[in-house]
Nucleic acid binder design. Sequence first.
DNA 1: TATACATTTGACCATTTGGTTAAACTATAT
DNA 2: ATATAGTTTAACCAAATGGTCAAATGTATA
Lengths: 210, 210
Amino acid sequence: MVNNMTENDNQTEDKIFEAATRVFEEKGMDGARMQDIANKAGINKALLHYYFRTKDRLFDAVFQKVAGRMLMKFAPVFEKDLTLEEKIRFFFRQHITFMQENPRLPAFVLNEINRNPARIKKLLKNVDFKKIWMMLIEQHKDELDKYNITEESIPQIMTTIAAISVFPFAAKGILEGIFENLGVNFDAYIEQRKEFAADFVIGALKSRKK
Amino acid sequence: MVNNMTENDNQTEDKIFEAATRVFEEKGMDGARMQDIANKAGINKALLHYYFRTKDRLFDAVFQKVAGRMLMKFAPVFEKDLTLEEKIRFFFRQHITFMQENPRLPAFVLNEINRNPARIKKLLKNVDFKKIWMMLIEQHKDELDKYNITEESIPQIMTTIAAISVFPFAAKGILEGIFENLGVNFDAYIEQRKEFAADFVIGALKSRKK
DNA sequence: TATACATTTGACCATTTGGTTAAACTATAT
DNA sequence: ATATAGTTTAACCAAATGGTCAAATGTATA
């Protein structure tokens, strides 16, 4: 074994990181236990502190990565050269599929941000929303006009799109409880939602047509 | 003082309850400290355990009440004798106004339910969703037909309405961060949302018209 | 092989935390 | 006044928890 050090290094760190992600996602910052993370990573608790000095730093590393991964999913939508309708359709498919694979992520991120709003600042520092905003307005000037979308209503529409996509996962616990009552299957509901959401939003926009 | 016992009893219990609500809403079950609650209630920690035996029972009492209060807000919508459009408009006004007064509630309830899904069962046990569901379908039979709403799409529409209403508060931490970047004022955005949301949903429904 | 350096571990520590207990305090009824 | 019962407190406890440390183990280099 020639270059074992770096590999092994990463192996252990990755094991820790993976275990920490699982535990933090499930229990949150306050509910997570370092011992639990160590156990799930199959290592000694002291080793956690060797790689990540404190629980806070470990959490920060995990949060930064998963929250970043989630926000990233919004990016390609703005870059692709598609019509507004295509973008909306593309976004819902992409984003909901991502959350199907990471169903705990939305609730986790939302919660931890509300618990400690300072964290989000670090995340958003690298994103220039103003620029994205301007690009979007410029790129879809004609469509915004066609759909009678004022600048003031853009935040409303954007957050509505995010809401429709994220909420089912953020409220998974409640919805599953209610759906059980109604004989609705959550997974099928989610699968269906990819198209429903796009239709719904596009329909709403069309109804604004001048 | 004649009947001081009961009054005093309630006074202390209420003080505890109020303080506990504040602390739990802010820090969550795991992050909350009994000592902190006691301090904020202006009493001894042992007295907490005198009124509510354990942290878990205290949390349960608080959660049951606030979560119930939140779910209750959905009820009057189903009972009132209004058209579907009127109901949608009424709901958004009512519900968003309620959350303006209790901005931490949505994130708190969503989070704790995801952290401990068993809790929701106790809450929903008393609500007969099947019955509400049937009533709704019967009451708005003609409108569902007019808007081409199949039974299958009702959960989609209902959760979409809830999403549009709740999400801005559940994601308040993030949104405020982003809005700051864009020069958007959160409170104004929320005020505006009461009407926007109704217009948006009704617009989407209208676009389904046969 | 000896040296230097990173990795891993078991034992340990100080603090925090939910919870208990016995005593003190208060008000009412007799 | 005194007994009774509910209320409040200070002092205390055991367990859990994040974190430390010195020793041990492994690994590459000279």
